[in-house]
Design a binder for these strands. Structure first.
Lengths: 232, 232
DNA sequence: TCGATGCTTCGTCTAACATCGAACTATGAA
DNA sequence: TTCATAGTTCGATGTTAGACGAAGCATCGA
């Protein structure tokens, strides 16, 4: 009677709080060790080991052995997309995690969403790019304008033509759970975030599993000069 | 420490097989009664009632009272999108439901994906539209060409300009779990499917919860004339 | 070779939750 | 009113799977 993919199996994998915590940590885009993930999820290593093997046979994560460490990462950007989608549904329904800590405001201001910038600043950047007509957005489908290509090359030394990828779009709208609006994903979004890091405008929070992005003082100024309210 | 949306809660809702069955049935886009959903999931009405209330407080489905019936539907196209995403992940990992029935081949050939055409024919249509240069697809972002607009108006009497929607894109690539390739979603995909039905080219299978789409003999011919292999 | 560290496997315990029978409410038909 | 149908609530039951302690491999450094 019932045919088709077993979505319950995959959803059940994500449905356990401990596993969801680990997956959320991996949404940071970094590969993390089993111990780090156990710590993130607040469980013992042996419990984490069990969870990780389940996630792996489920195809959600991949493993890479390196010495006596085992590094885990999300197996695919598609996985990240589904996780963000779930986060969007949860945020809309108002089901937020209860214990929001001191990092929460920082997380809302700027954070990594897999490999690109999210949070208040991420949304602000996409808004600004649109208002400056550097991007053309026709509801979820986004294109870089000719002017936008020049801007990327000049202001950020990003060769957008070189960012073509067989599986990922150049620009993509990604729903932001904290702002409930879109920010910029895709290879361009990732390249911009990488450039911010290279230029020392911003850095990932040191704590493993943290998705907070801290802007330096000068980085914040330069960001504002390019994407600030004034240029809206 | 951990902030953000509670994705585990939402995923756990989908993670129960009975609830996943109901949600999959609702992916058909029709509103179904509690009894029908119970039957679909193979559980008793009282169990279904419990599940349905959980899905409702979780924001995944909505309820509409009509006499002594209660009709349930997915609360949002976004929910459908996440469910399809989960199906994609499950299909890729090879986790298919075991008991595949006689309907399975029909389901793979043509089925409803929320409100648009999926399966072999759905993928074939998107391929053909692309090869005829009626759509321009730059990886996941799809646009209708000027020629495509004329085609829609002439061949299917669809005014694509009238399909603009504040929340949904006109064209969207949706991953097809049976073909593991994309088919056409978005308001245009929905409008085309609706037109197929109006023209009696195809009809939804009568059984409640079924997602099978049956093409009529003449409908199949006309579909092939527009999107068939020959026109590739 | 030895110990320390990272991770896994095994066994057991426990708590959560899906399930159903029975009883109750609400709507519609006669 | 009375009966039938649709659906819910309650309580009892049973299974599942998540948790950790203890022990076992594997890898690194000395």
């Amino acid at each position: 009677m019932k045919a088709g993919p077993d979505i319950a199996m995959i959803a059940a994998l994500v449905g356990d709080p401990a596993r969801a915590n680990m997956l959320t940590a991996l949404l940071g885009g970094r590969a993390l060790t089993a111990s780090e993930l156990a710590h993130q999820a607040g469980i013992t290593p042996q419990t984490a080991s069990s969870h990780l093997s389940k996630l792996e046979v489920g195809g959600l994560i991949e493993q890479e052995k390196q010495g006596r460490h085992r590094y885990y990462r999300l197996s695919d950007p598609d996985v990240a997309g589904v996780l963000e989608g779930l986060a969007g549904l949860a945020a809309r329904a108002g089901h937020m995690r209860l214990r929001t800590g001191p990092k929460d405001p920082a997380l809302r201001r700027a954070r990594i969403c897999y490999d690109h910038l999210a949070g208040d600043l991420g949304v602000q950047m996409l808004d600004s790019l649109r208002k400056q007509r550097l991007l053309r957005q026709t509801r979820q489908t986004i294109e870089l304008t000719a002017e936008g290509e020049r801007f990327m090359a000049k202001a950020l030394q990003i060769d957008s033509a070189a960012l073509a990828h067989p599986r990922r779009p150049l620009c993509k709208a990604c729903l932001d759970w904290s702002e409930r609006r879109h920010h910029l994903a895709g290879t361009l979004g990732a390249a911009i975030m990488a450039r911010f890091t290279e230029l020392n405008w911003a850095a990932r929070d040191a704590a493993p599993g943290s998705r907070v992005v801290n802007f330096t003082r000068s980085g914040e100024k330069r960001f504002a000069a390019l994407f600030g309210e004034s240029s809206d």
